[in-house]
């Protein structure tokens, strides 16, 4: 199994004991009407069952839950998780983010993820933008309880609504 140079670093990071982070790049778009995208990140197991949510960025501060009206547009996430949740959700949700690269610490989530070295999990990131498009990317990985190994040959790069997404040992 080949890994990119970046990801192979994770093999050296055993001493970090599960201290990884997810980077999500939101591209800067030259469009006449721009709204920050709604973004969800979650993990599915090799049976394609949803395991846990990692992040949800939406207009959570809007009055009377009006920001929740568009959550169904994060279509795949809505199906596997969102539609069964009560809003607002504690823990993984936050406001929408501007263009740029944002990180989500995976430490607390990996602590709860069953170690299964032979299983390929998938970390999904899905973005949906008002009057814009929708895009979903996935990073396959294994998790042995201490080391996360990305099973992708190339960096995972979006085309429209997402830039590069990656998982690496925490920088901070």
């Amino acid at each position: 199994m080949k890994n990119t140079l970046l990801f192979s670093l994770s093999g050296m990071a055993v001493s970090l004991a599960g201290d990884y982070e997810l980077s999500i790049e939101i591209p800067s778009l030259d469009v006449s009407e721009y709204h920050r995208p709604y973004v969800a990140a979650w993990i599915e197991d090799d049976s394609r069952d949803h395991v846990m949510d990692l992040a949800l960025w939406y207009e959570m501060a809007k009055k009377n839950g009006h920001g929740e009206k568009w959550l169904k547009d994060i279509r795949k996430w809505w199906r596997v998780s969102g539609r069964s949740l009560e809003f607002p959700v504690e823990g993984f949700s936050g406001p929408t983010q501007p263009p740029g690269t944002h990180t989500v610490s995976l430490k607390d989530y990996l602590a709860k993820l069953p170690a299964a070295p032979d299983k390929v999990y998938k970390l999904y990131v899905e973005a949906s933008r008002e009057v814009g498009g929708r895009e979903m990317l996935a990073i396959p990985f294994t998790w042995d309880g201490e080391t996360l190994t990305v099973k992708a040959d190339e960096p995972v790069q979006g085309k429209n609504e997402l830039g590069e997404i990656s998982v690496q040992p925490s920088q901070s």
């Binding site: 009006h66 929740e68 009206k69 568009w70 169904k72 809505w78 969102g82 539609r83």
Partner: peptide, 8 residues
């Protein structure tokens, strides 16, 4: 056919 939010 698929909606979210408070009383849509």
């Amino acid at each position: 056919s698929i909606l979210s939010g408070e009383s849509p």
